[in-house]
Nucleic acid binder design. Structure first.
Lengths: 339, 339
DNA sequence: CTGAAAGCGCTTACAG
DNA sequence: CTGAAAGCGCTTACAG
């Protein structure tokens, strides 16, 4: 590995001068020397040793991205997480940062990943409410939380209007004449996302004098585990007499359920209407195409990175929380009930 | 940030002694002192500065994972890539490595990401054939390529038997009585995967005296872009008189095509049979469920990491190439043609 | 414009 | 078992 020192020796200048050229501090080097040094740099394909640079500057250009690991399930088998992660990495790179990814479970995982490479900042996906406060105690680099609800003041976060998402789904189904509707989701995991969608959903029902009985609230342990999908499908099938529709909090789960229902000869939307959430690619791949609540993942990813960068560039700016809008996308999984 | 020096001062010992305790070199420290130091370490929640450690040891425990960026499309919107990445990160963590992820396009991207943090090793996903040789020139850390074909000798790689996958699909469709079959894939991108599947497919046809005319070979520019899906659906629809089935090289694309066909009232499998590839979750989410060629992504990911680790632990061991098996999974998108 | 000195937080190699 | 010295490859702060 060729170092600044090697280059300096060959160029007959000091290490400092080479360093200035590498870092583009051209005011400090004569144009002629700079050119000469640049050509030697190129000749040897010099690549800066970020490890040493980071140690000397206490500035690494690393951004840690931490994904909450739940039940040891691959968090990237969720299309939502994967798309978001890809978009964040892409944008970080454009801005000159390195992305170090870790799947975290314990405070210790977080602490280690936050501090060992002196990351400049960190992006968190799906952390639990109660963990967030503790994370702040670990480090004082800028932190941005995605899809987390928390009471911590001065939290930088990006999320979507989950409450409104629940409202939209309920309003839409009510407008189509549905009066008895199931709510299906993974466990809440204490990050508040599900809870807010549920609240928006049931508040809207209640405004119409309806309510969501506990037996219409179905919980799916895992959206990738076949067995738990099957159980939920069966529970849903046995609810069929009571319920004309279901709001499912992700397209991925909705697609699995629709597949399972079709095996039991329960047709969507004729026998049961379904509204999903996310508007991922899969909502147009299944048949009938899924009516769903849309969120913009690319925007969520970009905004998270931009907020982080803004705080990195302007130390001391106050925390910033952004809530992105959602909207209904009407397709073919909800039927109109005539009265 | 608390450093070894701080701890050493408080414990009234040298930095070296603390370092030995931190690194578990207990043979070198008296049990009593070790215990005392450990408690101070814990009290201050000491976290090792990997930056400094890496610089001193020339050993970072970072593994770089590079994903080939094509057309600036999010590589993690492919369920295949995302699942693979998640599984690799998980396994790397278990073994004590840090995962630095980058989306690469040029040799310079690769060079920078390979060298700037002195990564111990690197994992490449979907690199082009012609690039691989150049990558070897960049660095001599252990490299493992996933799903890449290359003429480079001594290449460590993990892939699947793409040729056999093509054969299986063709054999299956032939056995069901199909004689005129389309082959649909993204562009080959020179990594050989598509090419090998195609060759297995067309060789098998030829063994039966059939062949694949060029107009039955459809190329989809992008599997996430709606327009290119629509174009392919139309092309496929207009082939319908000539063709009774299509082999599609990913479940994701197959699902999109089936969705598009159903909008044109072309039913699968009655009007057209489809075989997919991968056996991702989506193949059971769509209806009818997709008949497909299965590969084991978790195994692919684990093997890639294990081969890398083996080379990391045993410098000088020869390169190792592994090819994983594939198998047919029969579901409901292929009909039997009576003759 | 140029460079010698000191230091970032750690480890290696050696002496006691 | 313990520690003082030197060094990893860079940058900062300063002197010329």
């Amino acid at each position: 590995m060729v170092t600044l020192k090697d280059i300096a020796r060959e160029a007959n200048v000091s290490v400092m001068t080479v360093s200035n050229v590498v870092n583009g501090k051209l005011g400090k080097v004569s144009a002629q020397k700079a050119e000469m040094i640049r050509s030697i740099l190129k000749k040897h394909k010099y690549v800066q040793n970020e490890t040493a640079r980071s140690l000397a500057k206490a500035n690494s250009n690393i951004v840690a991205i931490m994904l909450r690991n739940i039940h040891d399930e691959n968090p990237l088998s969720s299309a939502h997480n994967a798309t978001l992660l890809g978009a964040m990495i892409h944008r970080l790179q454009l801005l000159g940062y390195y992305a170090m990814i870790s799947l975290v479970e314990t405070q210790e995982d977080i602490s280690r990943n936050l501090r060992s490479w002196n990351a400049q900042g960190a992006l968190f996906l799906g952390m639990f409410d109660r963990e967030i406060e503790q994370i702040y105690a670990l480090s004082n680099i800028p932190l941005v939380f995605i899809d987390s609800y928390s009471n911590v003041r001065q939290l930088s976060s990006v999320g979507i209007d989950d409450y409104k998402g629940g409202c939209l789904a309920a309003q839409y189904l009510l407008a189509k004449g549905h009066r008895s509707i199931a709510f299906i989701s993974p466990p809440d995991y204490e990050n508040g996302v599900i809870q807010h969608r549920l609240r928006g959903f049931s508040d809207t029902l209640e405004q119409c004098g309806l309510h969501l009985p506990p037996e219409h609230r179905l919980i799916l342990e895992s959206d990738v585990d076949q067995r738990s999908v099957r159980q939920t499908v069966e529970a849903l099938a046995s609810l069929r007499r009571d319920v004309t529709a279901a709001f499912v909090t992700s397209d991925q789960i909705a697609a699995s359920l629709i597949g399972g229902l079709s095996n039991l000869n329960i047709r969507v939307p004729q026998d049961l209407s379904i509204v999903g959430f996310d508007n991922m690619l899969i909502s147009t791949q299944i048949s009938p195409q899924l009516t769903t609540v849309e969120q913009d993942l690319n925007q969520k990813a970009a905004l998270a990175v931009d907020i982080l960068q803004h705080r990195l560039q302007n130390p001391g700016v106050p925390a910033e929380s952004r809530v992105l809008d959602v909207r209904m996308v009407e397709r073919s999984t909800v039927r109109t009930i005539d009265r």
